Amino acid sequence: MISIKNLSKVFKTKDQTVNAVDDVSIDIPKGEIFGVIGYSGAGKSTFIRLINRLEDPSEGEIILDDQDIAALRKEPLRKKRQKIGMIFQHFNLLWSRTVFENIAFPLEIAGVPKRDRDEKVQELIDLVGLKGRENSYPSQLSGGQKQRVGIARALANDPTVLLCDEATSALDPETTDDILDLLVSINEKLNLTIILITHEMHVIQKVCHRVAVMEQGQVVEQGEVLNVFVKPQSKTTKRFVQQLSPLEHQIDRLDEFITDDQQSEVVKLHFIGNNAKRALISEVSKQLDVAINILQGSISPTQEGAYGTLYVEIKGEPTVIQEAIQYIEASGVEVEVLKHV
């Protein structure tokens, strides 16, 4: 368990005081992939640098394995840092060293004997899928391969926590998915707690169990990814969710698809888990005297199950339309009426 309590970081200059991280409290269970998302300047990168003390906190506690990292000094802090791995957006590899030597570097610093070091490095190379590239230099690798080296290096000292600071931002979409799949695999194989900083909701959706949304140094919302997707509370969270549902604020563009020959309701349906696999629209049409026009929809997988959104027009007599909506709600699907036609 990582327990972060009332964590703050204040930067002071002659002209201003900046609360980069402002009274943040988060609990992260062991073995969880926890996402922190926010726009540029939200404080998320400062937050992750506080966790391994690349920045010193102004206030608060960072409890890891029953130790307050914020209170550690010099030698105890150095030893604790060895159990906190970190990967970066721009890889931070040693360009004059091979893949093998880059991964071995933290083991050298830790004083691990060469035989044990070589065995560990080869194990990590196999784990991250770099077999055959041991003697390559970073300049000979693709972006995804460089990040795999960075991940292997971060795992060299068997950390209990892996921090990822925008680890996929410099990668193309296909390579991003490959790296995210690798992180999920590592999380499952090693029961490793991962804290992932990003500004991309797709990354949160694909790999995280829970998420915190940051704005101006504060956590404005946190919870299970599935719940945050279905019922975003803050304006910032809603903007991020819109990245995955671009139609959210474009409902007026559906007018050309909506019929006007009889009364209808345009509704948005939220499907969660097994309900996303159910032929509910077909059921409603058979059970009740309504016609249903599907306008737009999507189903997205998350670590906690499938999440689907469907926009439909329900046509028929007003009382029967209400019966159809009640039938859908009784099936465990959330209904939001968007427009009366």
Rank of each mutant, 00 (worst) to 15 (best):
S3M: 10
I4F: 08
K5D: 03
K9F: 08
V10C: 00
K12S: 12
T13Y: 10
T17C: 03
V21L: 05
D22Y: 02
D22M: 06
I28D: 05
F34G: 04
G35F: 07
G35Q: 09
G35V: 10
S45H: 03
T46H: 04
I51E: 04
R53V: 05
P57M: 09
E61S: 09
D68L: 00
A71M: 05
R78N: 10
K83I: 06
G85N: 05
H90A: 10
N92V: 11
W95V: 13
T98Y: 08
F100W: 09
A104Y: 08
L107D: 05
R115F: 15
D116E: 15
E119T: 14
E119M: 14
Q122N: 15
V128A: 04
G129M: 04
S136P: 07
S136M: 08
S139M: 13
L141D: 00
G144W: 09
Q145L: 01
N157A: 03
T160R: 11
L162D: 03
E166T: 03
E166V: 05
A167R: 04
T168Y: 10
S169E: 06
D172C: 12
T176Y: 12
D177I: 15
L183V: 02
I186A: 03
E188K: 15
E188G: 08
E188S: 12
L190P: 02
L190H: 04
T193Q: 05
T193V: 08
I195K: 03
I197F: 10
I197D: 09
T198M: 01
H199M: 02
H202D: 11
I204R: 00
C208Q: 06
C208K: 07
V213C: 04
E215T: 08
V219M: 01
V220S: 04
G223T: 00
E224M: 11
V230A: 11
V230I: 15
K231T: 12
Q233I: 11
T237R: 01
R239E: 14
R239H: 12
F240M: 09
L244C: 06
S245C: 12
E248L: 15
E248P: 08
R253I: 10
I258K: 05
T259R: 14
D261N: 13
E265S: 07
H270L: 12
N275F: 04
I281F: 08
S282E: 11
E283V: 01
V284L: 09
V284D: 05
S285V: 15
S285Q: 15
K286C: 04
Q287S: 05
L288F: 09
V290I: 13
Q296Y: 15
S298N: 15
S300P: 11
A306I: 11
Y307S: 06
T319I: 15
Q322N: 07
I325Q: 00
Q326T: 12
E329C: 02
E329K: 08
A330Y: 00
G332W: 00
V333W: 05
V335I: 05
E336K: 09
V337M: 07
